[in-house]
């Protein structure tokens, strides 16, 4: 089953309902699909297109623009080592070389056991804690070679499962808007008046 499953379809409809236009839910729904399958399948793209009222080609076009969406299976753990300036100044390239030797793959590759995919990535916004890496978007700071080895061991042994979910899961806490608190979402072209709390003239300072 590589389309969205029943539970995720319910979630998808809830997410779509928050936007004045369904198309805006495209990226959040691609995240839902990646969370379900670990990567983005062609079937999921077709399904999302149906849900948001776009063509598969349009959803595919959006999908391929963004770094985080993977069009093919990747390892259970995506190890992203930052190699932009601040991390490079503090030895990121040596860390990448070490990771490549340790995992026996080149950056961009996946280990044969399907556990690790290694990527050389761009600034992850932890520049004072260089060199930094993310495993499935969870940070490790000021990483040296020995710490990287230990970290990869811990991941492989499942010791960090509570902190680092499998690839595809980004945030484990979701927004949920209570029905009794939500303001009704109106299509942009159906609104012609200033909101009720604004002065009648509708002017601002």
């Amino acid at each position: 089953m590589t389309r969205l499953n029943d539970a995720n379809q319910v979630l998808a409809r809830e997410i779509i309902g928050r936007y004045p236009k369904a198309r805006s839910a495209t990226i959040p729904l691609l995240h839902v699909a990646q969370q379900q399958n670990g990567y983005i399948t062609q079937e999921a793209i077709a399904h999302i297109a149906e849900l948001v009222g776009a063509t598969s080609a349009e959803v595919l076009g959006t999908c391929t623009f963004y770094e985080m969406f993977k069009m093919h299976p990747v390892g259970k753990y995506l190890i992203n080592i930052c190699t932009t300036m601040s991390c490079a100044l503090m030895g990121a390239e040596q860390l990448v070389t070490h990771a490549e030797q340790r995992l026996g793959i080149k950056a961009g590759g996946t280990t044969p056991d399907g556990l690790f995919t290694l990527e050389r990535v761009e600034c992850q916004a932890a520049c004072t804690e260089a060199p930094c890496l993310q495993a499935n978007y969870r940070y490790r700071y000021r990483v040296n070679a020995a710490q990287l080895d230990q970290f990869l061991d811990d991941l492989a042994e499942g010791q960090l499962d509570a902190e680092i979910p499998a690839h595809g899961v980004v945030a484990r806490v979701r927004q949920s808007i209570p029905v009794d608190r939500a303001v009704s979402v109106v299509a942009p072209d159906d609104v012609h008046e200033a909101p009720v709390w604004m002065p009648l003239s509708g002017t601002t300072a």
Partner: peptide, 21 residues
């Protein structure tokens, strides 16, 4: 949400995720 702190002011805030660009 609706009628914030009992006033006429109502607004929804929607969290949106990027995907790396």
């Amino acid at each position: 949400g609706r009628n914030i702190l009992g006033s006429k002011f109502s607004v929804d805030i929607v969290l949106h995720w990027g995907a790396g660009a």
